[in-house]
Nucleic acid binder design. Structure first.
Lengths: 268, 268
DNA sequence: CTGCACTATGAATCGCTAA
DNA sequence: GTTAGCGATTCATAGTGCA
């Protein structure tokens, strides 16, 4: 099941049944950015703006469900805004359980140089729940034990690579990599390394596919329901659909809405 | 100059001159439920407990100086505490400028499994200043560029790099990489990776030493003064001393104090 | 099919100038 | 005064094309 709703999620969420969603995974418009395209909420009004949406999200989420919120504070006059911290505090005041903060390390962050700061290379991924007990399927997101040699492992069977390794050194590198192949998988940490997508040209802030895939596998099973109230270019619900989850997307912008709609029409 | 003070930093800080410190770099005791642990402060009293210390730190810091605060919220009954966010908000209320949040990604090898969360592998490194202008010596913490970038910068013939080019998004980003030709070092980002590996030539320091080294090089020059009001095992002031900075350490615990004192006596 | 070179671009920020 | 616009700065990664 794929359901697409066109409109402001503050209103459209009311059409969704209570306790019906297994995973909410979204990236709302950040404060005071992208004035001409999307949202454009000022930092000092952000918490107030998000409150009614947060309440609706709480209502529609199952007791075993999870809400993943992707957000990042921008710099205003040399200071990082505080609206994100205030938002988290406000959500806890409104019954949400703040279970964990994952870090999305963006490996290919923007270039640039300033006298007072380095490039911003990470974003928040807050995990909220309604209950201390919730569904979590850790075994479906296990990773290779030797993450750093993953790329080299891909080519380990290539004759040239093996030959080069053998001839180049006595380092034992080849042996080490082969031993990694047979090692058990390990659980990930709360730092997710992932580069930003460079494919999606039409949306200024689209997720790379890895992030939604990770959380959908971690927090839902097949035929569960995934919701993205700020669907944007639709990455989250496309991945959810691909992974045989039901999904609901809400999008305010007609162009983005049509893009997602067209995508699913094409696939029928 | 190495100065060691034995006692509670709330009191001992009063012995330090105003506007005399170039870098404060510390990791205060984290809030804890248990009473008898070192420094044990309850989460709901943390902000209140830190306030007089924060005020003293503000007083002793130079206008061009920086305060780096390393902290991480613990989990209490399945929830991440909010005292860290409340502390940052409180410090901004008390005149501190919240310039940046670095992420310390700890590539630790701890194993462990919990039903409701993954291994915690990062900590906050908050940067506070008294002024929007402060000393920052970025060139002293530059890192090796990745191989592909190095190769590309050797012979630029990509039209996008030579010409100014507008980005597709609204960011206004333009590129003119011509000035980067033959460069092999790049500036770091605000995500700091600490590897246990000693392979990397740029990071000869062992795991816990890299963080103070990075910030001391970034925010101070030789003969500047570095302060750690919660000196602990003394890593920060040992590194500061090694890098020819003056340093002041304050430590409440007699055992730790003696350890640091012995270390510097041995070196005379 | 592989290896290598080349191309495109992503939720950026600061400081100055003009209005 | 305040704000809006614009130039300057500078990486890492994934995808494409071609030998």
């Amino acid at each position: 099941m794929v359901k697409l709703l066109f409109g402001d999620c503050k209103d459209k969420l009311k059409e969704i049944d209570s306790n019906s969603i297994d995973l909410i995974l979204t990236s709302p418009p950040y404060a005071n950015q992208r004035k001409n395209t999307y949202g454009g909420v000022y930092p000092d009004r952000y918490v107030e703006w998000f409150k009614p949406i947060s309440d609706e999200l709480y209502r529609v989420l199952k007791h075993t469900g999870t809400f993943i919120l992707n957000i990042k504070e921008n710099v205003i006059e040399g200071q990082r805004s505080l609206y994100v911290m205030k938002l988290v505090i406000s959500m806890v005041d409104n019954n949400w359980i703040f279970t964990e903060e994952f870090i999305w390390h963006k490996k290919n962050s923007f270039c640039g140089k300033w006298p007072n700061r380095f490039r911003d290379s990470w974003e928040h991924l807050y995990q909220f729940n309604k209950n201390k007990k919730f569904n979590m399927f850790q075994e479906f997101v296990m990773q290779d034990a030797c993450e750093s040699t993953k790329n080299r492992l891909k080519n380990i069977n290539n004759k040239n690579d093996v030959k080069n390794l053998e001839s180049n050194s006595n380092s034992g590198l080849k042996r080490n990599m082969f031993s990694c192949v047979n090692r058990d998988k390990v659980y990930p940490t709360n730092v997710i390394h992932c580069s930003t997508s460079t494919k999606n040209k039409n949306h200024p802030a689209s997720f790379p596919e890895y992030i939604p895939e990770f959380f959908i596998k971690l927090f839902t099973e097949k035929n569960n329901v995934v919701l993205d109230p700020f669907a944007g270019s639709g990455t989250t619900i496309k991945i959810a659909n691909k992974l045989n989850r039901n999904c609901i997307g809400i999008e305010l912008n007609q162009e983005y809405y049509k893009m997602i709609d067209d995508y699913f029409k094409m696939r029928i």
